[in-house]
């Protein structure tokens, strides 16, 4: 393991101890540091704390917030709430999957530029259908408009 990763994990570990050993908080810290939950990090934590790795994976796979695979540079979040659903979010998602050449079950493009994910509701139902790109909100979207918006991220990838 790289030493920079080790330093980060040690900090998270001391936080974990102060937190009364809360697994969810530890995983949230790991994810906010690395962008996802690296398997190595879980095994390191398991060794350090004596808590079985299965416990960490159990929690990580239970909650939709946690990712066990690295994610793309730009995160496209498709809202799949009821309001967005009846206003056609499905068609935007189909179009994007096609446009980004994502095979069934895949969510990140081969070049790692985009990850397309669905969420239950972002709570912006008044302007449905809603898509987010890196937390920027796009309301009242159509498949065409969304594809056009994505072009701007391809040309000048966000930092």
């Amino acid at each position: 393991m790289e030493s920079s990763m080790l330093t980060k994990l040690n900090t998270i570990h001391s936080h974990f101890n102060n937190n009364g050993g809360n697994i969810i908080s530890a995983l949230q810290d790991i994810q906010s540091e690395f962008g996802y939950i690296p398997e190595d990090a879980v095994y390191w934590f398991s060794d350090k704390t004596g808590i079985p790795a299965s416990k960490f994976f159990g929690v990580a796979t239970f909650y939709s917030q946690f990712y066990l695979k690295p994610r793309g540079k730009n995160i496209i979040t498709a809202c799949c709430g009821t309001a967005c659903h009846v206003k056609g979010s499905d068609r935007i998602i189909f179009r994007l999957q096609d446009e980004l050449s994502l095979a069934k079950g895949e969510d990140t493009t081969g070049d790692g530029l985009f990850t397309l994910e669905k969420v239950a509701c972002v709570g912006a139902c008044s302007i449905a259908p809603v898509m987010l790109v890196n937390q920027k909100v796009y309301g009242k979207m159509t498949p065409d408009k969304m594809v056009k918006e994505l072009k701007t991220y391809e040309e000048s990838p966000s930092e």
Binding site: G21, N22, I23, I24, S25, Q28, V59, Y63, S64, Q65
Partner: peptide
């Protein structure tokens, strides 16, 4: 902070989640 699970709206599930 919750971590995204609808069932955690249920009281006893929510408690389990706070406990980590």
């Amino acid at each position: 902070l919750g971590a995204g699970a609808f069932v955690c709206g249920e009281e006893t599930a929510l408690i389990a989640s706070i406990e980590g």
